[in-house]
């Protein structure tokens, strides 16, 4: 058995896929490639493949990471060649690394993610970028930002997600560009999505701050507890 971790980008052309759609896309590409997939045991075996962190619908990405197990040794270079030929435009493989089959899954190593949210049209702030900045500061001063979610038992669970916001900065170029740089915690220990973050920001001044759909969100990279790609060391 062997394991490969790989990095990829997602462009606008394929931004509107859900996490499940992405899994399906990769599984079908892997099946077409004919690479020797390793299957899980049990009643309903499925290929052992995961993506480190679900990418929200509509969000583009610069460095995503996936992980796949093979029943025999597969060279990283060969993997890139075979899988690339089966991937649609809009998803690009940027690297692949063999890692031992032992050890934790990639998803268990995720700590946070780095996002940029850029206004699609600068006119949506009505020339009042300062208000966005003030609202952002006001929001960050809060000790509590509550997110309500319905769990599997259809009960509402409230979480304070403020601690998951590691960093949030604004960059502004007069009449040209307004961008937010966000570092948001993610993974099994809990986290906050950029979409929820922007919704909360808008709540600070609903009539004057752009809504979620006015931003283009780009995930620059995922940040891990340990470096998951030994080749980078």
């Amino acid at each position: 058995m062997s394991r490969i971790r790989f990095t990829f980008t997602r462009e606008v052309a394929l931004a509107y896929l859900s996490h499940l759609d992405m899994l399906r896309l990769f599984l079908r590409a892997l099946r077409r490639s004919g690479l020797p997939l390793e299957y899980s045991r049990g009643y309903n075996p499925h290929p052992r493949f995961t993506l480190a962190l679900p990418l929200p619908l509509g969000v583009t990405a610069g460095e995503e990471i996936g992980e796949v197990f093979f029943s025999e040794k597969v060279e990283a270079g060969f993997f890139i060649e075979e899988l690339t030929s089966q991937l649609p435009g809009g998803i690009k493989l940027t690297g692949a690394f063999s890692v031992g089959a032992e050890g934790p899954y990639i998803a268990a190593l995720v700590r946070a993610a780095l996002y940029r949210a850029k206004l699609k049209s600068i006119s949506t702030v009505h020339g009042n970028a300062r208000l966005v900045k003030e609202s952002l500061e006001k929001m960050l001063l809060k000790e509590e930002i509550i997110m309500n979610r319905t769990n599997k038992k259809k009960k509402i669970v409230s979480t304070n997600v403020r601690p998951f916001i590691k960093e949030a900065k604004m960059f502004y170029e007069q009449d040209k560009n307004l961008e937010l740089m966000l570092e948001l915690e993610a993974g099994s220990q809990g986290g906050i999505s950029p979409v929820f973050f922007l919704e909360q920001l808008q709540k600070e001044a609903p009539s004057e701050i752009p809504g979620v759909h006015d931003w283009h969100i780009h995930r620059e990279k995922i940040i891990f507890v340990d470096n998951p790609l030994p080749a980078f060391d």
Binding site: A13, L14, Y16, L17, S18, L25, A29, G58, G90, H213
Partner: peptide
């Protein structure tokens, strides 16, 4: 970015 299931209108499939 504003509609339900936008992939319906996206194209670019395999």
């Amino acid at each position: 970015s504003r509609v339900q299931k936008p992939a319906r209108y996206q194209g670019n499939e395999w």
